[in-house]
Amino acid sequence: MELDLAKEQLPSTQSKVNEHTPDHINQQIERETEASVNYFKRQGEHDIQERIKELDCEWDTERLLEVNMASIAFVSSLLAVRANRKWALLAGASSAILIQQALQGWTPAIALFRQMGIRTVDEINREKKALQNLLNKPE
């Protein structure tokens, strides 16, 4: 029972990111993914494998948020020590954004990333799976 309550309180990042992203952006990302898969349907095995390698290296919304907020926290902490203690507030704010992401699965920064076309790990994995299916498809 306790585990069920925890699941309800901590939504999956994928569902929250998609819920808080305007439909036209979700649909654009989906269209671009479908277009990529359709393009690779006409390509050779080597090209498909190269694309899968690219997808393995593609940064998703979570990674981008974590790196950006950690970088802000790090730099503002240095500035707080070296220049002015008020910079510590920025470190605290970036930490709060990471906590919000962990608990709610969404932050305003994610909305900006989505507008830039940054995909979630599930969206990247869907393209990867579709490409892997192309490799396993009998000719």
Rank of each mutant, 00 (worst) to 15 (best):
Val37Met: 04
Gln100Gly: 03
Gln115Arg: 07
Arg82Met: 15
Gln101Trp: 14
Leu135Pro: 01
Arg119Thr: 01
Ser12Glu: 10
Glu127Met: 07
Glu66Tyr: 13
Ala88Tyr: 07
Leu78Arg: 07
Ile72Asp: 05
Gln14Pro: 04
Asp4Phe: 04
Ala111Asn: 02
Tyr39Gln: 14
Thr61His: 00
Asn38Glu: 14
Lys7Glu: 06
Thr13Val: 14
Ser94Ala: 12
Phe40Gly: 04
Glu19Arg: 03
Asn136Ile: 08
Ser12Ile: 09
Lys7Tyr: 09
Gln27Phe: 06
Gly105Ile: 04
Ala102Trp: 00
Leu112Asp: 00
Ala130Asn: 03
Leu79Asn: 11
Asn68Phe: 12
Ala96Asp: 08
Asp56Ser: 13
His24Asp: 14
Gln9Asn: 11
Glu50Trp: 07
Lys53Thr: 11
Ala91Leu: 01
Lys7Thr: 10
Val17Arg: 00
Glu30Lys: 14
Ala73Leu: 05
Arg114Ile: 02
Gln43Asp: 08
Ile97Asp: 00
Leu89Val: 14
Asn38Met: 07
Arg114His: 02
Trp59Tyr: 06
Glu123Ser: 04
Glu58Lys: 08
Asn18Tyr: 13
Gln49Cys: 13
Asn136Leu: 12
Glu62Pro: 05
Trp87Asp: 09
Ile72Ala: 06
Asp23Phe: 10
Gly117Trp: 02
Glu123Thr: 02
Lys128Phe: 03
Ala93Leu: 13
Pro11Trp: 02
His24Met: 12
Arg82His: 11
Glu45Ser: 13
Tyr39Met: 13
Glu139Tyr: 02
Gln14His: 14
Cys57Tyr: 12
Asp4Ala: 05
His46Gly: 13
Lys86Ala: 15
His24Ala: 12
Arg119Asp: 01
Asn68Glu: 11
Ala35Val: 06
Asp122Ser: 11
Ser15Ala: 11
Ser36Gly: 08
Lys53Pro: 06
Glu127Phe: 03
Gln100Asn: 04
Trp106Met: 08
Gln28Glu: 11
Phe40Glu: 02
Ile97His: 01
Cys57Thr: 14
Met116His: 08
Ile25Gln: 00
Arg31Met: 09
Lys16Gly: 08
Met69Phe: 01
Arg126Phe: 01
Val37Ile: 15
Leu10Glu: 02
Arg63Val: 15
Ser15His: 11
Pro22Gln: 01
Arg119Lys: 12
Ser12Val: 08
Ser15Cys: 08
Leu78Met: 14
Asp4Thr: 08
His24Ser: 12
Glu139Ile: 05
Glu30Ile: 12
Ala35Gly: 11
Glu58Tyr: 04
Val81Phe: 09
Glu139Met: 05
